[in-house]
């Protein structure tokens, strides 16, 4: 779980987060309450309390105009692959 949340936090820090990611972090931290030891049970506390107290800082980092970040630009990927095999991309067709 800590690994999953760490990946999510990195996504937000990389500027690829959206509003749902903040909600997910808060929701997912509840799973750690069932952890076996105190270390696990408190592992999510830095994220939860910083989300609670420094929410504007998180909100500066996330993208506001979109609900979903695919982390992938189709157009540039098609262009790159076309360059590689020496074809002309047809963007109007799709």
């Amino acid at each position: 779980m800590t690994q999953v949340m760490n990946n999510k936090l990195r996504k937000i820090l990389d500027g690829k987060g959206v509003a749902k990611d903040l909600k997910d972090l808060k929701e997912w931290s509840k799973v750690l309450n069932a952890s076996r030891c105190g270390l696990g049970q408190t592992a999510a506390n830095p994220i939860v309390s910083s989300l609670k107290n420094f929410r504007p800082l998180y909100e500066q980092l996330i993208q506001k105009d979109t609900d979903f970040d695919e982390g992938f630009d189709m157009k540039s990927a098609v262009q790159a692959s076309c360059n590689y095999v020496g074809r002309v991309p047809n963007f109007n067709h799709h």
């Binding site: 779980m1 999953v4 997912w28 509840k30 799973v31 069932a34």
Partner: peptide, 11 residues
């Protein structure tokens, strides 16, 4: 909680 633990194991 149990469902998310199962999902975590799959992930």
């Amino acid at each position: 909680l149990r469902r998310s633990i199962v999902e975590l194991l799959f992930v």
